[in-house]
Simulated assay, not measured.
Amino acid sequence: MINQLGQVMLYVNDVEKIKSFWIEKVGFVVTKELHDTNVHSIEIAPNFTAQTRFVLFDRNVIEETEPELNFETPSLMFYTNDIDELYQKFQDAGITVGEKVDIQLGTVFNFADTENNYFAVMERK
């Protein structure tokens, strides 16, 4: 039986640049960093107690060893308790953000990392 989602793999072109984006601009923390002879991976999360974490992998290295994997960025929705505050924080940090939109479930906006991968954030009603 599956009881939770543990990790989401993000395959990126520049692991250190994307790590800096999530840590410095979004406010995530590094929970683990692994250096192997071939693979350098960085596990990040919103905080140290988060149940779901992201693992950043160098896309080129993984494509060589596991070419059958899907390397597209997954469509991810984050939740926040204060969308206006987060929207302003992201704008102040120079993050590319879309317009805030009210939908049936709440208010949502999207944002892009430095490799133009888009994610969304929602404050639920």
Rank of each mutant, 00 (worst) to 15 (best):
K100H: 03
N60R: 01
I95R: 10
L105S: 15
T80S: 10
V97N: 00
R59Q: 04
N47Q: 10
Q91Y: 01
T96W: 00
Y79M: 15
V101K: 06
L105Q: 11
L69Q: 01
M77S: 11
T52P: 09
P67W: 02
Q51V: 15
Y79Q: 14
L86F: 13
T114I: 06
D58A: 09
F90W: 08
T73C: 12
F54A: 03
M77D: 10
E63L: 03
E115G: 04
Y79S: 15
A50E: 07
N110Q: 06
Q51A: 13
T107K: 13
V55P: 09
T65D: 11
F48C: 07
E115V: 02
F78P: 11
T80V: 10
I95K: 09
F57R: 03
D102K: 10
F54C: 09
N47S: 13
D82Y: 08
V61N: 03
L69F: 07
F54I: 05
R59Y: 02
N60V: 06
G98Y: 07
K100I: 11
F90D: 03
E64K: 10
D102Y: 08
N110M: 07
Y87L: 01
N60I: 03
V101C: 03
L105M: 14
V101Q: 04
M77Q: 08
T52D: 09
K89S: 13
F54N: 05
F111K: 01
E63G: 03
L56G: 03
N110G: 09
E72F: 06
E85Q: 14
L69E: 02
V101Y: 00
A112T: 02
F90C: 07
V61K: 07
D102R: 08
I103F: 04
F90L: 05
E68K: 08
T49D: 05
T114L: 10
T52S: 12
N81A: 15
S75W: 06
D102F: 11
Q88P: 05
E68D: 11
E99A: 10
D92H: 08
D102A: 15
E68R: 11
G106E: 10
N70V: 05
T96E: 06
F71G: 01
F57T: 04
F78D: 04
A112R: 02
T73R: 08
K100Y: 00
V97H: 00
D82V: 15
Q104R: 12
E64Q: 14
I83Q: 05
I62E: 04
E85M: 13
Y79K: 13
F57S: 12
A93C: 13
D82G: 14
I83L: 12
N70D: 14
L105I: 13
F54G: 14
S75D: 10
P74H: 07
E64P: 14
N60A: 13
L86M: 14
N110Y: 11
V97D: 02
V108G: 02
T73K: 10
E68F: 09
M77H: 05
D58F: 11
K100G: 02
F57G: 10
T107F: 02
F90S: 06
I83F: 02
E63M: 06
A50T: 09
